[in-house]
Design a protein around this nucleic acid. Structure first.
Lengths: 128, 128
DNA sequence: AATAAGTTCAACCGAAAGGTTGAATAAAAC
DNA sequence: GTTTTATTCAACCTTTCGGTTGAACTTATT
């Protein structure tokens, strides 16, 4: 069952990263981060058709980044405040990986420095 | 001049988000977060042609997420540890925006509660 | 010098993305 | 009850994407 969970997490990451890769969609997210808004309001500043913006909103909605609640004929959009956690977590994990590696390299360098060139016969000494 | 800077930042965000939207490319980044590697090594685990992986690497390189240094006929790839900062910053900014808004809403609610409806008897109490 | 290994370049292909326009639907306002 | 307003649906078009294959290029190996 973890298989499925992992698979869907990957798909979610795909969707969220892809959703945020478009500048129009990021602008929509910025807009919605400040207050919720209707489709027409969101579309207003953009130099493209309302339909195009509507499609962008659908992409954001499908990725889970924005949510919609309808009130009569108006659709109110708002951002899903938890939706960026997974992306954030992924980035943080990567940073963790490479920082661990860089730390290890630093330790090696420090070790080499502490005990400089042991002359002709090199004795290797890996810490830990 | 800030115009151009902002424009290029937007383009960089586009490129990095788009680069990370593909699961193969994220896997490559994960691989490189642990150690640098050559193109062939990176390609090995993937069920696609070497050329396809080479193209993915180019996309990552163009986005600034990975870097390449050639040694003879081999190309060594490594991740650019600063490259995710902008994406991270953008996400953090969004979070900041909506948290500010949510805090404001909370304050309003608290205010309403402190001075409850002059009507008969409903007194709600939101836990802090 | 000939061959093998590591990698990219170039052309191609099908599918998806991002946009358009023109209905269609549903609720509000007149 | 007809007309606006808010929004989506559907079809289409062009560009980009992710993959393929085959050739070219550069550096090692023999």
């Amino acid at each position: 069952m973890i298989e499925k969970k992992v698979a869907s997490r990957t798909a979610r990451l795909d969707a969220v990263f892809a959703a945020l890769a478009d500048p129009t969609r990021r602008a929509i997210v910025e807009r919605l981060s400040r207050s919720e808004a209707r489709v027409t309001e969101i579309a207003e500043p953009f130099p493209m058709s309302l339909n195009a913006v509507s499609k962008h909103i659908r992409v954001l909605e499908a990725s889970g980044v924005v949510e919609r609640h309808k009130k009569g004929r108006e659709h109110f959009l708002s951002i899903n405040t938890g939706s960026l956690d997974e992306v954030d977590g992924w980035i943080e994990r990567m940073r963790h990986y490479w920082e661990a590696r860089l730390d290890a390299m630093e330790r090696v360098l420090a070790e080499l420095n502490k005990d400089p060139k042991p002359g002709p016969k090199d004795r290797k000494h890996v810490s830990r």
